[in-house]
């Protein structure tokens, strides 16, 4: 894992001597199957994952260690995940918090966000969506929203929603831009067409209707990247999905 770096746009000098710091993530989830999958998905060179399977062990961990992002299930054995958020805020810990809950109840969602959670994701979700959300939280936390994302020759100004390739601006549509960010957040992973469709159109739209459109969006992104002199990073993987990776 080398080329993906995040740096502050107002201090570009940092890039030269920027040392890659691993992000620490805590996964609080009582459902073993789900916890293992998330852990496996996040298990990368630059990411350290810890897990907690109940309220008490989660509370013990957040009392001692600081995390870049905590993936927090709300319905836990021994307690409510919302109390962990309260504990963090009471101690003025600035960990990023992403709530994952089967209860798509608005009350929980609003309470969670009011208490200071950064985002809320309803089960079931795709791991790629989770990864994109966690990445976004960490990015926001580290650089206060004013930041840029660089992947080799691709430079993305997140505040201005602008993409430059080799310092030349390239125009992407809203969906193409969103898809590009999604790919970069999930670099090296196979993203299924279902996950892409849900990311682009939400879950209220019949996903099967949109598979053909994914192809044309990706074709456009690829074309724009290549025409601007970038490498072609998007690979189709055996009819199932796409992967954004170094060639």
């Amino acid at each position: 894992m080398v080329n993906a770096t995040i740096y502050h746009r107002f201090s570009p000098n940092l890039t030269s001597n920027f040392t890659q710091k691993a992000v620490k993530i805590l996964i609080v989830e009582d459902e073993t199957g789900l916890r293992d999958s998330i852990e496996a998905y996040f298990d990368e060179v630059d990411c350290i994952c810890e897990t907690a399977c109940d309220f008490n062990s989660a509370l013990a961990k957040v009392s001692v260690y600081r995390y870049d992002c905590i993936i927090l299930d709300l319905t836990l054995p021994q307690g409510n995940g919302l109390d962990i958020i309260k504990h963090l805020k009471a101690n003025q810990y600035n960990d990023g918090i992403l709530i994952i809950s089967a209860k798509n109840s608005l009350d929980d969602r609003l309470t969670g966000l009011d208490l200071g959670a950064d985002d809320y994701l309803t089960k079931p979700f795709h791991l790629s969506e989770l990864k994109a959300r966690v990445t976004a939280i960490i990015r926001r936390k580290s650089f206060n929203g004013n930041n840029a994302l660089i992947f080799n020759e691709i430079y993305i100004d997140l505040a201005g929603k602008m993409v430059k390739i080799n310092a030349q601006p390239v125009k992407f549509t809203r969906k193409e831009y969103s898809l590009l960010l999604y790919f970069i957040a999930n670099k090296g992973k196979v993203i299924s067409k279902n996950a892409i469709a849900e990311h682009l159109w939400g879950d209220s739209i019949d996903i099967a209707d949109n598979f053909d459109f994914i192809y044309s969006h990706i074709k456009n992104i690829r074309k724009k990247l290549v025409e601007a002199g970038s490498n072609d990073y998007i690979q189709a993987t055996y009819g199932m999905g796409y992967k954004f990776a170094e060639a």
Partner: peptide
């Protein structure tokens, strides 16, 4: 419906892991 969400989430995540 709520109780169904968790197993569906597990299937989903296992599928996402499987394709990797």
């Amino acid at each position: 419906s709520h109780e169904l969400m968790t197993p569906i989430a597990v299937i989903n995540s296992k599928l996402d892991t499987l394709v990797q």
